[in-house]
Design a binder for these strands. Structure first.
Lengths: 198, 198, 198, 198
DNA sequence: CATGAATGAGATTTCATTCAT
DNA sequence: CATGAATGAAATCTCATTCAT
């Protein structure tokens, strides 16, 4: 919530990178949006790449820390999953520029940075895989392939940050409920227990 | 499957754009990968933008045409959905460079091109929305919000093209089956008809 | 003597670097002098540093090769020294931009390049040290410290490239003769055999 | 020997300019080495150029004043020359950063400053030329071209500041003796009076 | 005096595009 | 069709200098 020059630049950078992509964004444009001269950005960051890295690192750190906190107090795997999805979606809608960038610009990271972020990303995904595994253990979920399911879940939910707008007709809570419902019961899960009818 | 210069350039362009993004790719690099000199690209395409547009247009055209063909002969909405998902995933894994680019580089299109592609994309999504609506009509699906569900479905499936590798441990058929199952019945749909227990 | 664009750029670069130093020279200025656009330089060289390196490497290579050829056919150490000095001075006056740069801009080389050139420079100096050592052996020279003497000789002669101008009043041959004389007999060597009278 | 902020900055500036050249040095680097922040330098100097000028002016002033004092009490031209060389070398080794800069960065001076320093430099060189002329008059030296010889002498001796290190194996006194000897008698002057045998 | 954020001009470098051969 | 030298606009980055605190 602090509004230092540095934080303004970061905020505008996330927005710009989301809009035009990292490579498609220019520091001139960023400077203009942040209300500073081009050179001033280099007082706070040593390179364009560093700006991207700061956004990605802080976003991933927050994601991992907060989701762990959110699911700690839930008792059942289902409850943990619901809390996890809820948090994921809320964070991906409130800080949607940053999360979009963190999701879409992995490829723009230089090798060393890439490695760091991939580690954090795996850690985050692991949290969800663990929940699913627990659900299977406790027989409240039935999943053929945990990895696939976790990926599907996160991609589905992350995708929200691609189109969500606060001024859109669906509220965040509506979206959260729909997605949880969808992921837990599918399109037909509440209607009939039919097998896989090819 | 023709291997003209032009088709090689297109293939390499899709690969390169996927790897580094449209803005992050240079025509020099493309030329090198395609085995020609920089200037030669301009005998086949009038600009970098045109290369992107050709990829996107042909990809979207194929997507729309083929999915329609695939679902035509399916009788029930469930069957249509299964066929649709199957086709979507297969196409997104076999031509994953092109489909990835078509999905991720919308923002790199110039306004006129952007409009054209968005229309095609909506048409494609509409096909899936129609299936879901039909499913509700015929009471074989239960969906709160068709738009959200269609988006979730496509993002989930498209996401496969982000990580799928032919050398990975999951075959395309395995992936298709898992995703169809997941989307139709969710994690718990086959276990119990419990309500939404917050 | 070839006048390709590349050779023109190199020639002008040597001249500019000599005039303003490597760091003090801009590629814009170089481009202007070479009659090309700024960007064109990068068609021939990958960086400003590479231009400097090409100048230094080719200069040092020529120096070592040619001086070896020059002294090969001289029989006595004195004759070899005279030939060596003569060649050194001639090369440092005819290609004085390049030799000046090779001498003065060692510090502007990046570490890897620096190492390469230092090796070549040592090789060149060694040639002169060898001549002096041979002179001592054959008792036609009397030198307390070969390293110091070789350094003094080369610095004295290299210095010519700092002030020599083809339009000046001293011809190259005059300069060569004076320097050889000076270095062989000193200011007083022909007058009296006085000891070191402090 | 005073260690005011200003004198520290000057000392570090001479060192930095020697290492990277005037153009290649940045005030930020200088500030860091001097242990202050970038802006602080401007409390002591009005510009980067002024720092260079202060170094050069004080160095040249000291050179001229001290060499005159050193040679005043010597009686013969030979004695004067020995004293002059001795002083020159000692000063160029003890204050070798400053003297190196004074020697190498003439071209970095703005026109007005350039003129001033060139005058001082000529004055310094003239002192040595005068000694040589006196030596010829008194027939204790034999020199074809006084200007060339003076230039050769100074370049030879100044060059010491390019490689001298207090931790090297040659002491200053050793170097002084070798150079004096070398310049007075050459490599062969003490051996035989042979003519110029081409 | 000292700081350090900010400036803005300018440096190096990149790259889509053109065109003579 | 193909080449590769050249362009020129624009991108990233640097740095001497200023100034409010």
């Amino acid at each position: 919530m602090t509004s230092t020059r540095k934080s303004i630049i970061l905020k505008e950078a996330a927005h710009l990178f989301r809009e035009k992509g990292y490579s498609g964004s220019t520091l001139r444009e960023l400077a203009k949006r942040a209300g500073v001269q081009g050179g001033s950005i280099y007082h706070h960051f040593s390179s364009k790449q560093e700006i991207l890295m700061v956004i990605m690192e802080s976003t991933m750190t927050t994601l991992v820390e907060k989701v762990q906190h959110e699911i700690t107090f839930a008792k059942t795997p289902l409850e943990k999953l619901r809390k996890g999805i809820q948090f994921h979606i809320k964070y991906h809608t409130t800080d949607r520029d940053e999360t979009y960038v963190a999701d879409a610009e992995l490829r723009s990271l230089e090798p060393a940075n890439y490695k760091k972020i991939v580690v954090m990303r795996r850690k985050y995904e692991q949290i969800f895989r663990d929940i699913l595994a627990m659900g299977i253990d406790q027989k409240c979920m039935e999943i053929e392939n945990i990895s696939l399911a976790a990926r599907a879940l996160l991609q589905m939910c992350t995708g929200i940050s691609y189109w969500y707008s606060p001024s859109g007709k669906d509220s965040i809570d509506t979206i959260v409920d729909s997605y949880v419902e969808l992921f837990l019961y599918g399109l037909c899960g509440k209607i009939h227990h039919g097998g896989n009818q090819k």
